[in-house]
Protein backbone atom coordinates (compact mmCIF):
# COMPACT_ATOMS: atom_id res chain seq x y z
CA UNK A 1 0.00 0.00 0.00
CA UNK A 2 2.76 2.41 1.01
CA UNK A 3 4.65 1.49 -2.15
CA UNK A 4 1.63 2.37 -4.27
CA UNK A 5 1.25 5.74 -2.56
CA UNK A 6 4.98 6.35 -2.99
CA UNK A 7 4.86 5.48 -6.69
CA UNK A 8 1.83 7.74 -7.19
CA UNK A 9 3.70 10.53 -5.44
CA UNK A 10 6.74 9.91 -7.63
CA UNK A 11 4.56 10.01 -10.74
CA UNK A 12 3.03 13.29 -9.57
CA UNK A 13 6.46 14.79 -8.95
CA UNK A 14 7.66 13.62 -12.38
CA UNK A 15 4.67 15.24 -14.07
CA UNK A 16 5.21 18.54 -12.21
CA UNK A 17 8.95 18.44 -12.98
CA UNK A 18 8.22 17.76 -16.65
CA UNK A 19 5.75 20.65 -16.79
CA UNK A 20 8.34 22.91 -15.16
CA UNK A 21 11.01 21.86 -17.65
CA UNK A 22 8.67 22.40 -20.60
CA UNK A 23 7.77 25.88 -19.29
CA UNK A 24 11.41 26.88 -18.88
CA UNK A 25 12.15 25.38 -22.28
CA UNK A 26 9.37 27.45 -23.88
CA UNK A 27 10.61 30.61 -22.16
CA UNK A 28 14.12 29.87 -23.47
CA UNK A 29 12.84 29.40 -27.02
CA UNK A 30 10.64 32.49 -27.05
CA UNK A 31 12.99 34.81 -25.17
CA UNK A 32 15.45 35.19 -28.03
CA UNK A 33 15.16 38.16 -30.34
CA UNK A 34 14.45 36.79 -33.85
CA UNK A 35 17.19 37.52 -36.36
CA UNK A 36 15.39 38.17 -39.64
CA UNK A 37 18.40 37.60 -41.91
CA UNK A 38 19.40 34.16 -40.57
CA UNK A 39 16.08 33.16 -39.00
CA UNK A 40 13.73 33.72 -41.94
CA UNK A 41 15.22 31.11 -44.33
CA UNK A 42 15.23 28.55 -41.48
CA UNK A 43 11.58 29.34 -40.74
CA UNK A 44 10.57 29.01 -44.40
CA UNK A 45 12.34 25.65 -44.64
CA UNK A 46 10.47 24.38 -41.58
CA UNK A 47 7.11 25.72 -42.78
CA UNK A 48 7.71 23.71 -45.93
CA UNK A 49 8.60 20.58 -43.93
CA UNK A 50 5.79 20.67 -41.38
CA UNK A 51 3.18 22.53 -43.44
CA UNK A 52 3.51 21.94 -47.16
CA UNK A 53 4.46 18.28 -46.74
CA UNK A 54 1.36 17.75 -44.55
CA UNK A 55 -0.91 19.12 -47.28
CA UNK A 56 -1.60 15.77 -48.95
CA UNK A 57 -2.91 14.04 -45.82
CA UNK A 58 -4.92 17.11 -44.80
CA UNK A 59 -6.53 17.57 -48.23
CA UNK A 60 -7.40 13.88 -48.66
CA UNK A 61 -8.77 13.61 -45.11
CA UNK A 62 -10.76 16.83 -45.49
CA UNK A 63 -12.26 15.63 -48.75
CA UNK A 64 -13.40 12.30 -47.33
CA UNK A 65 -14.69 13.76 -44.08
CA UNK A 66 -16.68 16.35 -46.05
CA UNK A 67 -18.08 13.64 -48.30
CA UNK A 68 -19.07 11.48 -45.32
CA UNK A 69 -20.71 14.48 -43.67
CA UNK A 70 -22.65 15.04 -46.89
CA UNK A 71 -23.89 11.46 -46.96
CA UNK A 72 -24.74 11.27 -43.25
CA UNK A 73 -26.31 14.73 -43.24
CA UNK A 74 -28.47 13.95 -46.24
CA UNK A 75 -29.66 10.65 -44.71
CA UNK A 76 -30.69 12.30 -41.43
CA UNK A 77 -32.04 15.61 -42.79
CA UNK A 78 -34.07 14.04 -45.60
CA UNK A 79 -36.15 12.22 -42.95
CA UNK A 80 -37.43 15.66 -41.94
CA UNK A 81 -37.60 17.00 -45.45
CA UNK A 82 -34.89 19.56 -44.69
CA UNK A 83 -32.03 18.24 -46.81
CA UNK A 84 -31.55 21.78 -48.12
CA UNK A 85 -29.92 22.60 -44.77
CA UNK A 86 -27.07 20.19 -45.54
CA UNK A 87 -24.72 23.01 -46.59
CA UNK A 88 -25.25 24.81 -43.31
CA UNK A 89 -24.67 21.60 -41.33
CA UNK A 90 -21.46 20.67 -43.15
CA UNK A 91 -20.00 24.17 -42.94
CA UNK A 92 -20.75 24.67 -39.25
CA UNK A 93 -19.44 21.21 -38.30
CA UNK A 94 -16.23 21.70 -40.23
CA UNK A 95 -15.50 25.32 -39.41
CA UNK A 96 -16.32 25.11 -35.72
CA UNK A 97 -15.10 21.65 -34.79
CA UNK A 98 -13.81 19.11 -37.27
CA UNK A 99 -11.54 21.48 -39.19
CA UNK A 100 -9.37 22.54 -36.24
CA UNK A 101 -9.60 19.27 -34.28
CA UNK A 102 -9.02 16.71 -37.02
CA UNK A 103 -6.30 18.83 -38.62
CA UNK A 104 -4.56 19.08 -35.24
CA UNK A 105 -4.77 15.31 -34.75
CA UNK A 106 -3.39 14.72 -38.25
CA UNK A 107 -0.75 17.37 -37.68
CA UNK A 108 0.38 15.69 -34.43
CA UNK A 109 0.63 12.32 -36.18
CA UNK A 110 2.32 13.52 -39.37
CA UNK A 111 4.43 16.57 -38.46
CA UNK A 112 4.64 16.40 -34.64
CA UNK A 113 6.05 12.89 -34.53
CA UNK A 114 8.56 13.77 -37.28
CA UNK A 115 9.70 16.87 -35.35
CA UNK A 116 10.20 14.85 -32.16
CA UNK A 117 12.11 12.09 -33.93
CA UNK A 118 14.31 14.58 -35.79
CA UNK A 119 15.22 16.61 -32.70
CA UNK A 120 15.64 13.45 -30.60
CA UNK A 121 18.02 11.99 -33.14
CA UNK A 122 19.97 15.24 -33.29
CA UNK A 123 20.32 14.99 -29.51
CA UNK A 124 21.34 11.32 -29.61
CA UNK A 125 24.01 11.97 -32.26
CA UNK A 126 25.36 14.93 -30.24
CA UNK A 127 24.46 17.42 -32.98
CA UNK A 128 22.75 19.69 -30.44
CA UNK A 129 25.75 19.46 -28.10
CA UNK A 130 28.17 20.24 -30.90
CA UNK A 131 26.07 23.25 -31.84
CA UNK A 132 26.26 24.49 -28.22
CA UNK A 133 30.01 24.02 -28.23
CA UNK A 134 30.24 26.06 -31.44
CA UNK A 135 28.59 28.94 -29.61
CA UNK A 136 25.26 28.42 -31.37
CA UNK A 137 22.18 28.13 -29.16
CA UNK A 138 20.16 25.11 -30.38
CA UNK A 139 17.01 26.55 -28.80
CA UNK A 140 17.17 29.44 -31.24
CA UNK A 141 18.73 27.72 -34.21
CA UNK A 142 16.89 24.37 -34.19
CA UNK A 143 13.89 24.59 -31.89
CA UNK A 144 12.50 28.10 -32.45
CA UNK A 145 12.03 27.81 -36.25
CA UNK A 146 10.23 24.48 -35.80
CA UNK A 147 7.96 25.82 -33.06
CA UNK A 148 7.02 28.91 -35.08
CA UNK A 149 6.56 26.86 -38.24
CA UNK A 150 4.04 24.60 -36.49
CA UNK A 151 2.30 27.62 -35.02
CA UNK A 152 1.99 29.27 -38.46
CA UNK A 153 1.27 26.18 -40.57
CA UNK A 154 -1.42 24.57 -38.44
CA UNK A 155 -4.15 27.27 -38.78
CA UNK A 156 -3.55 27.47 -42.54
CA UNK A 157 -3.87 23.68 -42.81
CA UNK A 158 -7.11 23.82 -40.77
CA UNK A 159 -8.55 26.43 -43.15
CA UNK A 160 -7.59 24.29 -46.14
CA UNK A 161 -9.13 21.23 -44.45
CA UNK A 162 -12.45 23.04 -43.93
CA UNK A 163 -12.55 24.44 -47.47
CA UNK A 164 -11.82 21.04 -49.04
CA UNK A 165 -14.32 19.39 -46.66
CA UNK A 166 -17.09 21.79 -47.70
CA UNK A 167 -16.25 21.14 -51.33
CA UNK A 168 -16.39 17.34 -50.69
CA UNK A 169 -19.78 17.76 -48.98
CA UNK A 170 -20.99 19.78 -51.97
CA UNK A 171 -19.84 17.05 -54.36
CA UNK A 172 -21.91 14.45 -52.51
CA UNK A 173 -24.90 16.61 -51.57
CA UNK A 174 -25.35 18.66 -54.74
CA UNK A 175 -23.65 16.71 -57.53
CA UNK A 176 -24.56 13.21 -56.41
CA UNK A 177 -27.68 13.37 -54.25
CA UNK A 178 -29.31 16.27 -56.06
CA UNK A 179 -29.74 18.91 -53.35
CA UNK A 180 -30.50 22.29 -54.96
CA UNK A 181 -27.22 24.16 -55.26
CA UNK A 182 -28.77 27.55 -54.48
CA UNK A 183 -30.14 26.40 -51.14
CA UNK A 184 -26.87 24.55 -50.34
CA UNK A 185 -24.78 27.73 -50.61
CA UNK A 186 -27.57 30.13 -49.59
CA UNK A 187 -28.29 28.37 -46.28
CA UNK A 188 -24.59 28.21 -45.59
CA UNK A 189 -24.09 31.92 -46.23
CA UNK A 190 -27.02 32.95 -44.08
CA UNK A 191 -26.13 30.78 -41.08
CA UNK A 192 -22.33 30.85 -40.89
CA UNK A 193 -21.14 33.97 -39.11
CA UNK A 194 -17.62 35.17 -39.82
CA UNK A 195 -16.76 36.23 -36.29
CA UNK A 196 -18.71 33.64 -34.28
CA UNK A 197 -17.93 30.61 -36.40
CA UNK A 198 -15.01 31.17 -38.76
CA UNK A 199 -12.87 33.26 -36.40
CA UNK A 200 -13.57 31.09 -33.38
CA UNK A 201 -12.59 28.01 -35.39
CA UNK A 202 -9.46 29.83 -36.53
CA UNK A 203 -8.56 30.76 -32.94
CA UNK A 204 -8.97 27.11 -31.96
CA UNK A 205 -6.56 26.04 -34.69
CA UNK A 206 -4.03 28.67 -33.61
CA UNK A 207 -4.14 27.32 -30.03
CA UNK A 208 -3.92 23.70 -31.21
CA UNK A 209 -1.01 24.53 -33.53
CA UNK A 210 0.93 26.14 -30.72
CA UNK A 211 0.27 23.29 -28.27
CA UNK A 212 1.05 20.52 -30.77
CA UNK A 213 4.28 22.19 -31.91
CA UNK A 214 5.33 22.88 -28.30
CA UNK A 215 4.73 19.27 -27.23
CA UNK A 216 6.56 17.92 -30.29
CA UNK A 217 9.71 20.03 -29.95
CA UNK A 218 9.84 19.63 -26.16
CA UNK A 219 9.51 15.86 -26.30
CA UNK A 220 12.34 15.72 -28.85
CA UNK A 221 14.59 18.03 -26.83
CA UNK A 222 13.85 16.33 -23.50
CA UNK A 223 14.03 12.71 -24.67
CA UNK A 224 16.46 10.10 -23.40
CA UNK A 225 19.03 10.02 -26.24
CA UNK A 226 18.69 6.33 -27.13
CA UNK A 227 16.58 4.46 -29.70
CA UNK A 228 14.10 3.44 -27.00
CA UNK A 229 14.02 7.01 -25.66
CA UNK A 230 13.28 8.51 -29.08
CA UNK A 231 10.60 5.90 -29.73
CA UNK A 232 8.96 6.66 -26.39
CA UNK A 233 9.17 10.44 -26.99
CA UNK A 234 7.54 10.09 -30.43
CA UNK A 235 4.69 8.07 -28.94
CA UNK A 236 4.28 10.63 -26.15
CA UNK A 237 4.09 13.43 -28.72
CA UNK A 238 1.15 11.83 -30.51
CA UNK A 239 -0.65 10.77 -27.31
CA UNK A 240 -0.16 14.03 -25.37
CA UNK A 241 -0.96 16.20 -28.41
CA UNK A 242 -4.16 14.27 -29.14
CA UNK A 243 -5.33 14.44 -25.53
CA UNK A 244 -4.38 18.10 -25.21
CA UNK A 245 -6.24 18.97 -28.43
CA UNK A 246 -9.41 17.13 -27.38
CA UNK A 247 -9.32 18.55 -23.85
CA UNK A 248 -8.62 22.09 -25.01
CA UNK A 249 -11.33 21.78 -27.65
CA UNK A 250 -13.89 21.15 -24.93
CA UNK A 251 -12.67 24.12 -22.90
CA UNK A 252 -12.56 26.45 -25.92
CA UNK A 253 -15.95 25.31 -27.16
CA UNK A 254 -17.44 25.95 -23.70
CA UNK A 255 -15.93 29.43 -23.67
CA UNK A 256 -16.79 30.32 -27.28
CA UNK A 257 -20.16 28.68 -27.80
CA UNK A 258 -21.35 27.96 -24.24
CA UNK A 259 -23.52 31.07 -23.99
CA UNK A 260 -26.60 29.17 -22.78
Amino acid sequence: MLDRIASMGRLGLDVVASLGRSGRFLAGVLSGVPRPVTGFPLLIKQIYTVGVLSLAIVVVSGLFIGMVLGLQGYTILSDYGSEAAIGQMIALTLVRELGPVVTALLFAGRAGSALTAEIGLMKATEQLSSMEMMGVDPLRRVIAPRLWAGFIAMPILAVIFSVVGIWGGMLVGVEWLGVFEGSFWGNMQSSVDFLDDVMNGFIKSVVFGFVCAWIAVFQGYDCVPTSAGISSATTKTVVYSSLAVLGLDFVLTAVMFGDF
Partner: peptide, 23 residues
Amino acid sequence: KRKDLYALREKMGMLFQSGALFT
Protein backbone atom coordinates in the same frame (compact mmCIF):
# COMPACT_ATOMS: atom_id res chain seq x y z
CA LYS B 1 25.94 34.47 -18.26
CA ARG B 2 24.48 32.56 -21.19
CA LYS B 3 25.58 35.22 -23.70
CA ASP B 4 29.14 35.37 -22.34
CA LEU B 5 29.36 31.58 -22.24
CA TYR B 6 28.39 31.35 -25.90
CA ALA B 7 30.95 34.07 -26.71
CA LEU B 8 33.64 32.07 -24.86
CA ARG B 9 32.68 28.93 -26.75
CA GLU B 10 33.53 30.67 -30.02
CA LYS B 11 37.15 30.37 -28.84
CA MET B 12 36.73 26.63 -28.22
CA GLY B 13 36.49 23.72 -30.60
CA MET B 14 35.35 20.28 -29.62
CA LEU B 15 35.70 17.04 -31.50
CA PHE B 16 32.93 14.69 -30.38
CA GLN B 17 33.39 10.94 -30.28
CA SER B 18 30.68 10.45 -32.90
CA GLY B 19 31.84 13.42 -34.99
CA ALA B 20 28.37 14.97 -34.52
CA LEU B 21 28.23 16.26 -38.09
CA PHE B 22 24.93 17.78 -39.18
CA THR B 23 23.44 14.99 -41.23
